[in-house]
Design a protein around this nucleic acid. Sequence first.
DNA 1: ACCTGAACACCGTTCAAGT
DNA 2: ACCTGAACACCGTTCAAGT
Lengths: 195, 195
Amino acid sequence: MAIDVDTVVRTSVAIADAEGLDALTMRRLAAELAVTPMAIYHHVPGKEALLDLIADESMKQLPVVDPTGAWDEELERFFVAFHRLYLEHPALAQVMAQRPLEGPTAMARGELLLALLVGAGVSDEDAVAALVSLVGYTIGMSLYRLSRDATGRFEGLTEQAAPTAYRLRSRIAATAEHEDAFADGLRRLIDSYCR
Amino acid sequence: MAIDVDTVVRTSVAIADAEGLDALTMRRLAAELAVTPMAIYHHVPGKEALLDLIADESMKQLPVVDPTGAWDEELERFFVAFHRLYLEHPALAQVMAQRPLEGPTAMARGELLLALLVGAGVSDEDAVAALVSLVGYTIGMSLYRLSRDATGRFEGLTEQAAPTAYRLRSRIAATAEHEDAFADGLRRLIDSYCR
DNA sequence: ACCTGAACACCGTTCAAGT
DNA sequence: ACCTGAACACCGTTCAAGT
């Protein structure tokens, strides 16, 4: 039934995107591929390995930075795209949250970012420190945002019953959901590495 | 057998801390409590609710900020403790990654942080923006660090076979695992809100 | 080499019954 | 009110067998 690693991975991504990561089970995937659950194991060692493949495949959507561009602008462009990738694929964010950014594709993108910084005169140490901070910030802000989207908000919390908590939540929600909240903090972080 | 919500939650935390979140199943928990799996459902609606309770219970370990202290120092103290809490309880970080910081305890801590900032003359909007960024940064850096700790590192990656990727990973690992990496980026972010 | 069928050792949760 | 026993509808994965 024309089953290979690529179709397995692509179908997995499609299921996770459409119905959430919980819906992605080996049995569901097999059904989608019109095949027995065990057939998948001839192309992928197991579910963990499948998630690794999904992670790496998805990272290919990250932009490739231009090493000749302005490094602060390139950084902003890259991490805004990173953030957007997570928001558009919540299941991916969920997968990546538990997985080091160590796939071949992620590493290749990392090399480019590092080269960009070092080429701009930043020391090796500072460049790596900057990258780690920016990646951490991006992951955290994405997950934080997604977790607010996912849950039914203000459940059982009315303005009458708990006015302070209610107002705090409203304000946090408004800020966290605003597109610019992420970019604002990102710029603060990037700027701090400019000096 | 002396089963109440508190012992259920505390035992859950103990299992998750000792053996990881995956080991925390309703059946395993029941065994630990010397009770039938179904007994738990008379004290907690279900597993999701149990995870909510674990989350809120754990948040009680976060420090209470001193509203009369220097706000930059208080912020640093709070988020460094937050980071440490996650590192010491990886299962908690895993739970929180998928859950909004909206429990009663988290909200109470948030109120205090907000009061601290507003008391220092920061506008409401900026204060909320600062908190969201700092929380996002802290969550992301914690998860990023934990994900590197969890996986067997450099699996199948030798210096001979792929020298560039190998060196990049080594440098990232060294940076990410350094205690000061988190605090450094945190200070950059906090400082950016001082001006 | 690739796929199937049946089975194993698990999950969370429902439901009816006991005290 | 609190707990039990048996069952249901799932999981990921092993193993032996087919082609």
